[in-house]
Amino acid sequence: MSDQATLEVRNLQTHFFTKAGVVKAVNDVSFSVGKGKILGLVGESGSGKTVTGFSILGLVDEPGRVVGGEILYRGENLVGASQERMRQLRGNNVAMIFQDPMMTLNPVLRIDTQMIEAIKAHHKVTDDEARQRARDALGQVGIPSPDERLKSYPHQFSGGMRQRVAIAIALLNKPDLIVADEPTTALDVTIQGQILYEVQKLCAETGTAMIWITHDLSVVAGLADEVAVMYAGRVVEAGKVDDVLDAPMHPYTAGLIGSVPSRNARGKRLHQIPGMTPSLLNLPEGCAFAARCNYATAACEQPPALENAAGARQIRCHHPLVAEAV
């Protein structure tokens, strides 16, 4: 880590203060992502990965609040930054792509309106220039006849096309960082493949750093450079994609990988992780995964720390697995 990372998150804590109690959606999350790199942020639903994404953009809504940690964008701490500073960064330096393409575009505004306003929110340009850039961006994500498409309404696009438009909007101001929250989950597999390929190409070409939030390990395997696995609001394991997926050290990661149907396992029962994710309202004192873990011992009643392991890996476990465990 000689260069400054595009984004570094340190000990991020985002809690929701509900009537029922404090929901610790993100509870000590750290990772970093460098220029042109793609970080896969993996976890089950409810593990806090989406909230992490929103925290980075300062889009956590009441009753949620970032209560601790640092979010360093090129060295600038975004936790506690002013509303106006966050607005300047959003869409310009840091962009986000949402999960459901059917819901992210405003149904009553034309595509050109929604694209041009995104440019003009950050740059003093004429409408014509903005329109030109919007057209280019649509072309960049592979939308045919962009001129015509600019005048359309979102409902005139298919889901895959809409997600391309959303990606084009994210690319408009050439951001340094894109947070993509499961952008391909709602799409057909073939479309998913095309989009993944294009995103990978774009990151490599433009040097944009990307955080790809997903629950799908196979996507991460093909796309990301590094991966961080989240469980119950914490990063439990992080490292280079190949290292982590080939030789998971955390029992939870191993369980996740084990539950992916693969060609080798045909005919065999799929592995599954017993039990359910714990309620974020009252997390156990110690390791949150202990109740579901085959390796748990009395030691697991103490919270494990995120420790560095060999090969630029980090692991939060009292009983890390050795390489041949899977």
């Binding site: 607005r87 959003r90 869409g91 986000m96 949402f98 459901d100 992210t104 149904p107 995104a118 950050h122």
Partner: peptide, 19 residues
């Protein structure tokens, strides 16, 4: 989501509410 997406685009509060 489209309101949140509009915020993620960095639009001003005035434009989000007004448009």
């Amino acid at each position: 989501d489209y309101i949140k997406f509009a915020r993620a685009k960095g639009l001003s509060t005035g434009r989000i509410i007004g448009v």
